[in-house]
Amino acid sequence: MQHLMIDFEKVQPADLDCLDPDSVHVWLFLGTEQQETIPLRLCESLCRFGKKVHFVHVHNNAPTALDFYLSFYLGKIIDHDPAAIIGILSQDSGYDVLVEHVQQSLQAKHISRVSSLAELQQRSRDINAFHEPTKDANNSPFASLVQPAHKLAPMKTTTTISQNNSSEQVVKNANNSELVDKYYPNILNAMSQKDAYHPRRRRNLVANIRRFVAQSEPELHSDSQTELAELIVVRLEENQLITAIDDGLLSYHFNQDGSDSGEN
Rank of each mutant, 00 (worst) to 15 (best):
L4P: 01
I6W: 01
D7P: 02
F8M: 01
E9G: 07
E9R: 05
V11G: 00
A14H: 04
D17V: 06
L19A: 07
L19I: 08
D22K: 07
S23K: 12
L28V: 05
L28N: 01
L30Q: 08
T32V: 15
E36Y: 09
E36L: 10
T37F: 09
E44H: 03
G50F: 13
G50Q: 09
K51E: 15
V53W: 03
H54K: 15
H54N: 15
V56Q: 14
V58P: 04
H59G: 06
N61E: 15
P63R: 12
D67F: 10
Y69K: 05
L70C: 08
S71Y: 05
F72A: 07
I77L: 08
I77C: 09
I88S: 01
D92H: 10
D92Q: 08
V97S: 13
V99Q: 05
H101S: 15
V102A: 08
L106M: 11
L106Q: 12
Q107I: 04
A108E: 03
K109H: 07
S112M: 08
R113M: 11
V114Q: 04
S116P: 06
Q122I: 10
K135C: 08
K135M: 10
D136N: 15
D136L: 14
N138R: 12
N138F: 10
P141T: 10
F142T: 02
F142E: 02
A143N: 13
H150I: 12
M155E: 02
M155I: 13
K156T: 12
T158A: 13
T160D: 11
S162K: 12
N164E: 11
N165G: 08
E168Q: 14
V170G: 06
A174L: 15
A174D: 10
N175M: 06
N176Y: 04
N176R: 03
E178P: 00
V180I: 05
N189M: 10
R200S: 13
N204K: 07
N204S: 13
F212P: 00
Q215V: 07
S216N: 05
Q225R: 13
T226N: 06
E230S: 08
L231T: 02
I232R: 00
V233H: 01
V233F: 02
V234H: 03
V234F: 04
R235M: 09
L236Y: 01
N239P: 05
A244R: 12
A244W: 03
A244S: 14
G248W: 06
L249Y: 09
L249H: 10
Q256L: 12
G258Y: 11
D260L: 05
S261Q: 03
